[in-house]
Amino acid sequence: MENLEVHSFLKCCTRMWKKLRTRYLEIMHEPAFQNEFQSLLRDYVGRPSPLYLAKRLSAMYNTPIYLKREDLNHTGAHKINNTIGQILLAQRLGKHRIIAETGAGQHGVATATVCALKGIECIVYMGEKDIERQAPNVARMKMLGAKVVPATSGSKTLKDATNEAIRDWINNPVDTHYIIGSVVGPHPYPDMVARFQSVISEEIRWQLKEKTGSELPTHVIACVGGGSNAAGTFYHFLDEGSVELIAVEAAGHGVNSGMSAATTQLGKPGVLHGSRSYVMQTEDGQVVEPHSISAGLDYPGIGPLHAHLFDSGRGTFLSATDEEAVKAAFLLTRLEGIIPALESAHALAALEQLQLNEKDTVVLCLSGRGDKDMGTYMKVMEEQTI
């Protein structure tokens, strides 16, 4: 580009970005927006999602354990809460092309779903490695009319898919809205995604009061990669000091194995994808490739909200290995008849690390269902007797 063209392009990018930053809260609070958003959550997504007392799991740990059943949402995960909100926002901003990144494929499916609902073009960037291990979700995206573009650089996973999506967005600022799937990225995404996902904790409070007489559990547990399901699950408990917020990261083959995604234990402050947070990086600032058996947690950073919870001590950060997550998944399946996503299985694995008693009340976000992970589960069953 000539200098004049570059200057004009950068002005256009800045103008489009400023429009999103300055208008997102105004649009989100408009009565017409909220009416459509709440209507779709109820009639299309199927909210409220149940708060289920897992009796056999509770008996095993000698404490009441409630599962927030985000796996029962349309598309099978919490991701649809955010994509419904962002597609409505994109329409009001005049965008007619949607891009997204995805790891486990659940956000890609949720984005493709709302684009099909609204008749808007959809392009989903996905790591080549994740395309292979999440084939059912790739097929769903394509069936919904989305174009799935493989990211072939780096580890060929979520980080690289996000890189490609950001490149697309920067080059198409006028007509394109980027539906980021987690509480990461440049402002206003960490805040905006957390607000759309906060419906999870909003429901938990009144549902728990109906069941127990109190809105406040003693423990709230959720898995964390970027951390959108955790942000939504924690949101309405952030100022409730009596509620312990427990975030569970992916330890992969072990925190110190060199194949892990436990960012708070391995990372340090840095900038990744437009936000300052904790990032797994080398001494000279190069991103360290993460590893997790769960594609949705295979990310070398966490959202800035979670970094603050870690720094301030408000959140308790644990980790679970691949092996521990798989074991927890099979345990839930055989105790409760619920097959969880591998991401959610990490949260379940943390129950082994807690000192719980009958006076506690635990709420755990079951962020997604395990249909997409059946290939991995089948491989485990073939390799060993479970």
Score class of each variant (00 low, 15 high):
residue 91 Q to K: 15
residue 306 H to K: 11
residue 351 L to S: 00
residue 346 H to I: 01
residue 107 H to G: 06
residue 280 M to A: 10
residue 172 N to V: 02
residue 351 L to C: 01
residue 122 C to P: 01
residue 377 Y to D: 06
residue 372 K to T: 09
residue 256 N to V: 00
residue 253 H to F: 02
residue 204 I to Q: 10
residue 314 R to L: 03
residue 140 R to A: 14
residue 126 M to C: 08
residue 297 L to Y: 10
residue 314 R to G: 03
residue 28 M to Q: 04
residue 220 V to S: 12
residue 335 L to M: 07
residue 238 L to Y: 15
residue 378 M to T: 09
residue 97 R to E: 15
residue 133 R to T: 03
residue 240 E to A: 12
residue 158 L to K: 08
residue 222 A to C: 10
residue 342 L to I: 00
residue 380 V to E: 05
residue 3 N to Y: 07
residue 44 Y to G: 12
residue 67 L to F: 13
residue 228 S to K: 11
residue 214 S to L: 10
residue 370 G to I: 03
residue 324 E to D: 00
residue 146 A to S: 10
residue 3 N to L: 14
residue 92 R to I: 07
residue 206 W to F: 14
residue 34 Q to F: 03
residue 287 V to K: 08
residue 147 K to R: 13
residue 210 E to L: 15
residue 266 L to A: 05
residue 101 E to H: 08
residue 111 T to V: 08
residue 6 V to F: 09
residue 123 I to M: 12
residue 199 V to M: 14
residue 105 G to T: 10
residue 380 V to Q: 02
residue 34 Q to W: 05
residue 119 G to Y: 08
residue 215 E to W: 06
residue 190 P to A: 05
residue 142 K to D: 00
residue 260 S to R: 01
residue 233 T to G: 15
residue 95 K to P: 09
residue 260 S to I: 01
residue 365 C to P: 09
residue 214 S to P: 08
residue 21 R to W: 02
residue 167 R to I: 08
residue 109 V to G: 04
residue 120 I to D: 02
residue 323 E to K: 00
residue 63 T to M: 13
residue 157 T to E: 02
residue 61 Y to S: 07
residue 358 E to W: 03
residue 212 T to K: 07
residue 302 I to A: 11
residue 254 G to R: 00
residue 211 K to V: 11
residue 30 E to W: 11
residue 47 R to T: 06
residue 228 S to I: 05
residue 23 R to E: 14
residue 19 K to A: 06
residue 131 I to W: 07
residue 335 L to H: 02
residue 187 H to V: 12
residue 324 E to K: 00
residue 120 I to M: 05
residue 115 C to K: 00
residue 227 G to Q: 12
residue 360 D to V: 10
residue 63 T to H: 13
residue 8 S to E: 15
residue 149 V to G: 10
residue 299 Y to V: 06
residue 67 L to N: 12
residue 368 G to W: 05
residue 66 Y to W: 15
residue 35 N to G: 11
residue 102 T to H: 02
residue 252 G to T: 00
residue 304 P to H: 05
residue 245 L to F: 05
residue 267 G to R: 04
residue 253 H to Q: 04
residue 159 K to P: 05
residue 255 V to I: 14
residue 226 G to N: 08
residue 166 I to T: 06
residue 234 F to Q: 09
residue 224 V to A: 12
residue 48 P to E: 14
residue 117 L to I: 09
residue 307 A to M: 09
residue 352 E to H: 15
residue 287 V to H: 11
residue 8 S to L: 09
residue 70 E to H: 07
residue 210 E to C: 13
residue 258 G to N: 11
residue 351 L to G: 00
residue 223 C to W: 01
residue 219 H to E: 05
residue 328 A to M: 13
residue 42 R to S: 12
residue 20 L to G: 02
residue 271 V to A: 11
residue 75 T to S: 12
residue 200 I to Y: 14
residue 115 C to Y: 01
residue 276 R to I: 03
residue 269 P to C: 03
residue 92 R to H: 07
residue 93 L to R: 08
residue 73 N to P: 03
residue 236 H to M: 14
residue 349 A to C: 06
